[in-house]
């Protein structure tokens, strides 16, 4: 057993933070929170606090990266040094670079990049406070920042993870569950379209468990999607 590992993850059908197995942490989304950016969003998801800004379409620098037939989408996931218990060294590490890549690929399928040849659409995701599930929080924030910037897109992209703790399949891992659980499965989808734009997994799922967790993660995405829609309507719905 590792240091800080709880004996049991689920007691009387409740998780350590009081949630039911299929329950999300509290999620709050706000758009249009930054002045300079073309679009922005702030997401609080459990203890995660994440800011995303979208700039573009704009001129591509360096110029050779420009594509004659479409815009290039660039995503940067970055963790603030103070976002975690032990200070994180500033600048991109291997984990951030991988997350930046899968985030871009999670969003690319919905963005009409073909409408803006020779431009760049840049999305910057800053993790201000991390508490398990930052990549999903980042994708949710990034997708909202794109919508807020008026970038044409097929749909918003919700993301949510499911996992396994103490042998049980649960939705949206907390930090203790993430650190000591047996599996983590982040998923992003295009709602109503049966398209999975991100799926990653680490840990151990036995036969049957994977399917159950996957379905649960997709259900979680749909719950997040409702919160995303509401946030946009709330901010701009007065029109």
């Amino acid at each position: 057993m590792k240091i800080g590992e709880p004996e049991k993850f689920i007691i009387d059908g409740k998780r350590l933070d009081g949630r039911k197995p299929g329950e999300l942490r509290k999620v709050k989304i706000e758009v249009g929170v930054l002045k300079k950016a073309d679009g922005s969003a702030y997401v609080e998801w459990g203890g995660n606090k994440v800011l995303a800004a979208c700039y573009g379409p704009r001129e591509v620098h360096p110029k050779h990266l420009a594509r004659a037939d479409r815009a290039i989408l660039r995503c940067t996931y970055s963790m603030a040094p103070f976002s975690v218990t032990d200070r994180k060294r500033p600048g991109p590490d291997r984990r951030s670079i991988e997350i930046s890549k899968v985030t871009r690929q999670a969003l690319e399928p919905v963005v009409f990049t073909n409408l803006f040849p020779r431009t760049a659409i840049d999305v910057f995701i800053e993790i201000l406070q991390a508490q398990a599930g930052t990549r999903c929080t980042g994708i949710v924030a990034a997708s909202m920042a794109l919508a807020d910037a008026g970038i044409p897109m097929r749909n918003l992209v919700p993301a949510c993870a499911a996992g396994k703790v103490g042998g049980e399949i649960v939705l949206d891992l907390s930090d203790v569950e993430d650190n000591f659980g047996e599996a983590d499965l982040p998923v992003a989808i295009v709602p109503q379209k049966d398209e999975v734009t991100l799926i990653q997994m680490d840990g151990n799922f036995e036969k049957g468990e994977f399917e159950k967790a996957f379905k649960l993660a997709v259900e979680g995405c749909m719950k997040i999607y409702e919160i995303q829609k509401e946030a946009l309507k709330k901010r701009y719905g007065g029109a």
């Binding site: 899968v102 690319e108 799926i199 990653q200 680490d202 840990g203 151990n204 799922f205 036969k207």
Partner: peptide, 10 residues
């Protein structure tokens, strides 16, 4: 058992 997974591509 499934131990790792990664989706790629646009």
């Amino acid at each position: 058992d499934i131990c790792a997974m990664q989706k790629g591509g646009d």
